[in-house]
Amino acid sequence: MISLKNISKKFSTKQGTIVAVEEVNLDIKKGEIFGIIGYSGAGKSTLIRLLNGLEKPTSGEIIVNNEDITKINEVKLRQVRQKVSMIFQHFNLLWSRTVEENIAFPLEIAGIPPAQRSQRVKELIDLVGLEGRGHYYPSQLSGGQKQRVGIARALANRPEVLLCDEATSALDPETTDSILDLLVSINAKLGLTIVLITHEMQVIQKICGRVAVMEKGHVVEEGNVLDVFQNPQQTITKRFVSQVSDSNKALQTIQQLKELYPNGKLIKLVFVGEQAVQPILSRLIKQFDLEVNIVQGNISHTQTGAFGTLILQLEGEALLIDDAIRYIHEQKVNTEVINND
């Protein structure tokens, strides 16, 4: 669906050349929700603007539906943009227009007759859950409702790709969840490919199937969201995963337990998919004569399955502890013994 090949983007300034994106290679599949995460300055906003031709790359190729958009003229680029729509952090609505008129705006530009526009607007208002608010102005809407208008407007011309540029960053957590649920619903109903950029791992966790992590213009890690949660490779990825797992708090507790139980062993269990709902802990307690203290437990749900972590303190005979750890391994649970030094 979308393929980026050795994409770089450089900006010339009075202070010199700024490299915003460097040698990025990505493949985004048709119909998936793909996340791009990074902190401010990572290059993710520049990257998403490259996907619909709002920015031209300095080098590389961007293939959208078998079309290299870096090599087409403006007429063909405008046609491509009709199939690659975008929603923004601050909504970008026309404040002098009603909800209906905002949604109809791209249809007007496309020359769609009034009767067809009206029918399409009604469909979209129903789709995004704004029934009864068609005649409202943006100033009369909540933040979540404004973003729903933005989504409806982006869908007006029946795009194949929806780009989301920090689309939930201006919203409170509850409203964020409702907008993310709406995007998942739209993805399922329309088969729409969604590319979402964010600096919040909770957003990636909730709706994305795959994720690319950006730092200083580079994609430093990429993969299935569940795999990234289970085994983050880069320091920055571990920081993002800790937003959800609260591992910093766990480490503080671990340090305390090292002092309280110097002769025991601390182990971290990582559960993935069906493992996350298996009663492994109760089986462990029944089969082994050990003191088992739960330090921390957490289960997160992603689009591709559940991911859980459990930190235990095992105290008892050394051979029994080793047998217990082997038993956990046999259950295909990723186990890490935390150094008690």
Rank of each mutant, 00 (worst) to 15 (best):
Q243N: 00
V244S: 00
S245H: 00
N248Q: 14
K249C: 07
K249M: 11
A250W: 12
A250L: 13
A250D: 15
Q252M: 12
Q252C: 06
T253P: 04
Q255N: 15
Q256Y: 08
K258E: 03
K258T: 03
K258D: 01
K258I: 04
L260A: 13
Y261D: 03
P262G: 06
P262E: 08
P262N: 09
P262K: 05
N263G: 03
G264D: 01
K265Q: 15
K265R: 14
L266G: 00
L266R: 00
L266E: 02
K268V: 06
L269S: 00
L269P: 04
L269F: 10
V270T: 14
V270R: 09
G273Y: 00
Q275T: 11
Q275E: 13
V277L: 03
Q278L: 12
P279R: 01
L281R: 08
L281T: 07
L281V: 06
R283W: 09
R283N: 13
L284K: 05
L284E: 01
I285P: 04
I285Y: 05
I285N: 08
K286M: 08
K286S: 09
Q287D: 14
Q287I: 09
F288M: 03
F288G: 02
E291K: 10
V292Y: 10
V292E: 04
N293W: 05
V295I: 14
Q296G: 11
G297C: 01
G297D: 04
I299K: 03
S300Y: 04
S300L: 15
T302W: 00
T302D: 00
T304R: 01
G305F: 01
T309D: 04
L310V: 04
L310K: 03
L310W: 05
L310N: 04
I311S: 12
L312K: 04
Q313W: 11
Q313T: 14
L314P: 11
L314M: 07
E315N: 06
G316L: 12
G316T: 10
E317S: 08
E317L: 07
A318T: 12
L319D: 15
L319H: 14
I321S: 03
A324C: 10
I325D: 01
I325H: 01
I325N: 01
Y327V: 07
I328A: 10
H329L: 08
E330Q: 14
E330D: 15
Q331V: 11
Q331M: 13
K332T: 11
V333N: 11
